[in-house]
Amino acid sequence: MMRIVEKIRQKNENYHSGPIPTIVFLGDSVTHGCFEIIEGTKRTLEVVCDFEAVYHNQFKKILSMVFPFAPINIVNAGISGDTAQGGLQRLERDVLRFNPDLVVVCYGLNDSNKGKEYLNEYLDSLAGIFLELKKHDIEVIFLTPNMKNTYISPAIKSLPLIEMAKLNMESQINGTLDLYIDSAKELCQKEKVVVCDCYEKWKKLYHSGVDTTNLLSNFINHPNRPMHKLFAWSLFETIMF
């Protein structure tokens, strides 16, 4: 059980026990709350955001069910299109200023699209994030992401979306994303960072014959709403058990 649980438990039992526990979620478009991608009016492509369905909101609902009297601050520090390098650069502005008790870091989807030659940039950025958080005695969880598309869905009609799907599919099926996530988990083991391994769960679904591409709301890289609950429950299990 992580320290954040004890802080929430104390707050649940005694309103005056201390500051309201704060959890920050640092990541890319999945953390941001992005789902479908549609052809827009002001720009070529627009993203549908659903902050009710995003996994950290579902996670908060689970915590509120178990600890019904404890207020909990959830900070969404996800930015669509972001990478681990971007997360490190904005750590002070978007994370540390909130004095969080726990930070959940989720990167790898956009990073892996750069190719295997940028793996060290990804790992160095993650290491920098972990180091800064440890300096401030902040608990950290590395949340591994979902799988990306393994084929071009016939539901994708727009040419820009097809090109985006091709890029993401390539990094998925040629093993680049696997390499990124496996390397990140090795880094976490070395740095003693807790891992919530949802990517492994997606891989098991895939190898069991599940059409994981059909579990993506944009058929490229954004999980659909029900699959966000997989992240939420996995995080709950990670901090509690």
Score class of each variant (00 low, 15 high):
I152W: 07
Y151E: 05
G27Y: 05
G40S: 00
L143H: 02
G86L: 06
R90P: 02
D28T: 09
I38Q: 14
P21A: 09
F51T: 08
L45T: 04
M65Q: 15
K42L: 14
V66G: 09
N14H: 05
A84C: 00
H136A: 12
I38C: 11
M147N: 11
K148G: 14
F59R: 07
K42Y: 12
I38Y: 13
P68V: 06
N113I: 13
T144M: 04
T44G: 14
T31R: 01
E36Q: 13
E132M: 08
R90K: 04
D94Y: 00
T150C: 10
L26D: 09
Y151P: 08
I72M: 07
L123E: 01
V24Y: 09
N73C: 08
E121W: 10
C34K: 12
G81Y: 05
L109M: 14
H136D: 13
T31L: 01
E92D: 10
Y107M: 07
K135P: 01
H16T: 13
E132T: 04
T22W: 15
N99C: 11
I72R: 03
P21G: 03
N120C: 04
A84Y: 01
D111K: 00
K116F: 11
F142G: 00
I23H: 00
V24W: 07
T144N: 00
T150W: 10
P71I: 04
Y107N: 00
T83A: 05
G33T: 00
N113T: 11
Y55T: 01
E117F: 06
D82N: 15
V140S: 03
L63C: 00
G27H: 06
G81P: 07
F142E: 07
K60L: 10
A84N: 05
P71D: 10
L131G: 11
G115K: 05
K114M: 15
Q85M: 15
H56K: 10
S17K: 08
F35R: 02
R93W: 09
L133G: 03
D137A: 11
F35C: 06
A84T: 02
V75Q: 04
E92T: 12
E121N: 13
F142T: 05
Y15L: 12
G128C: 00
K114S: 14
L96P: 10
E36P: 05
P21E: 05
P21N: 04
F69P: 04
L45G: 06
N57H: 14
T150K: 12
G128M: 03
S112R: 04
G108P: 03
K116L: 13
M65N: 12
F130W: 04
G108H: 07
N76A: 08
E46M: 07
T41H: 14
Y107P: 06
N120K: 09
V103Y: 08
E39N: 15
Y151H: 06
K114Q: 13
S29I: 01
D111N: 01
T83Y: 02
I37V: 13
